[in-house]
Amino acid sequence: MSALPASTSVIPHRPAASHPRWLRLTHWLNALAVLVMVTSGWRIYNASPLYDFSFPSSITLGGWLGGALQWHFAAMWLLVFNGLIYLTFNIASGRLWQRFFPVGPKGVLHDLWAALRGRLSHADLAHYNQVQRAAYLFVMVDIILLVASGLVLWKSVQFGLLRELLGGYETARHVHFICMALLVAFVAVHLVMVALVPRTLRAMVLGNKDSGNKESV
């Protein structure tokens, strides 16, 4: 039994496809937006490093501060509007509740332990184990915080309430950086997991046509 994810029995009903078209499209657009935002953000960071290090210029985008700012403030539209479209579909289709909940520390630890012993099943890509649920929900919240702190850095006077909520301009700089670091850490783990279960990459590119059959089983 321990091979099964903790919450299999709780799922009442699933939408037909595990990776519907809107999900795949928003996923890859988000990946592009994140890549541009992070690499241009590193260049902006280098102009006045908040901590005791700089990013190597070779892995940054923009060539100089002005160029990096142009990339950053262009890709922000993609990040925000693509993210809003994703969240809208996710909520409206009921996918958010069906796929990501319930989730709790007990289930996450259970599935994490199973995963570390290589006993977590990935047979059904439409089903997220609790570690996946926690990780994906985390990255959604993380990007929302990145956008919120970014808005404070961009327009600290116009978004005064948001500025106060985040503890002021200077604190927002730290929040923005830490959320970026956590996002990069997520991406690193995410890519390792994709490498371990390559079928997921195929599903995210082409969709998962088998999931309909699996559902009836």
Partner: peptide, 10 residues
């Protein structure tokens, strides 16, 4: 008031 530089420092 706070002077905010485009480089990020203030």
């Amino acid at each position: 008031t706070r002077h905010i530089c485009v480089e990020g420092w203030s």
